[in-house]
Simulated assay, not measured.
Amino acid sequence: MPELYLRLLDRILTPILLILAVFLFLRGHNEPGGGFIAGLAAAAAFQLQILSRGDEYVRRLIGPYLHPMAGIGLLVAGAAALIGFRQGGFFKGVWASIHLGQLELDFGTPQLFDLGVFLVVVAVVTSFLLGLSKSEASEGGEEA
């Protein structure tokens, strides 16, 4: 059974880690950060969930989505690379602007690539952490 202090830390640090992951993801194409480090921060939040609530809880919550998430991430990153062909080069940056009143949002293939990397890193690292935390009871019993 997880300790009381881990459950308390989980309630406090998981939202902070997820907000940090969003922050790192959004600033990554202009400054240090991006999909990889944001994925590691999100995976750290899931590791805290594994430690505080147990691997079975996290396995039920996000386990079925991990492999599809990795596949979608690879497709998104590959699509970002191929969209550059439209502008004349592999991995060439393509940008689009959305105007919402006086607010202008710029989106481009670097963010799309970072999104793919983020999805792959979260899925692979969380799958690895779940594999490391697999208990003997969930493996089918004790060996003789």
Rank of each mutant, 00 (worst) to 15 (best):
E139H: 15
L18Q: 01
A79S: 08
G63N: 10
H29T: 09
L17Q: 09
R27Y: 04
Q87V: 07
G93Y: 07
P68E: 11
L40E: 02
M1F: 15
L132G: 11
E142F: 12
L82Q: 04
F107S: 00
K92V: 00
Q102A: 12
P15F: 03
S97R: 13
F90G: 00
G131R: 05
Y65F: 15
A70I: 03
L115Y: 03
R86M: 13
G78H: 06
I50L: 03
L8F: 10
H29F: 08
V94C: 00
Y65L: 14
L129W: 13
D114G: 06
L61Y: 10
L75G: 11
F113V: 00
L4Y: 14
G33C: 10
L105F: 13
Y57G: 00
G28P: 10
G39K: 14
G33F: 04
G131F: 08
G131M: 01
F90I: 08
M69T: 15
G71P: 04
F85R: 01
S52G: 07
K92Y: 05
D10E: 13
F23Q: 02
A77I: 01
V124C: 10
L75W: 10
I19G: 08
S97W: 09
P68C: 12
S135A: 13
Q49A: 12
L129V: 12
L26G: 01
T14N: 07
E104S: 13
F91P: 00
Y57W: 12
Q87G: 09
A45F: 05
V117K: 00
F23E: 08
R59K: 15
N30Y: 14
M1D: 12
Q111A: 11
E104L: 10
L18C: 04
Q47G: 11
Q49D: 11
G54F: 07
L40V: 11
G108N: 06
T109Q: 02
F118Q: 02
L74C: 13
G78C: 04
I72F: 10
V120Y: 00
L82E: 02
L9Q: 13
F91H: 05
V124Q: 06
L8A: 14
T126D: 01
G39W: 12
A77M: 09
S135K: 14
A41K: 03
H99L: 02
L66H: 11
R59H: 12
V76I: 15
G116D: 12
G35Y: 09
F90K: 04
R7F: 06
V76E: 03
L48D: 09
G33K: 06
G116P: 11
F85C: 03
F25L: 15
L82N: 01
I12G: 04
G93C: 03
A42Y: 09
A137M: 08
S138W: 05
L112H: 09
F46T: 08
T109M: 00
P68M: 13
F46M: 12
E31D: 12
R60H: 06
A38Q: 07
L115R: 06
A45L: 05
L17G: 06
P32E: 05
E143A: 15
A77K: 01
F85M: 06
P110C: 07
Q87S: 12
L100C: 00
W95E: 05
A80I: 07
I12F: 15
V94A: 00
A96P: 01
A77P: 02
I19Q: 05
L119N: 03
G28I: 11
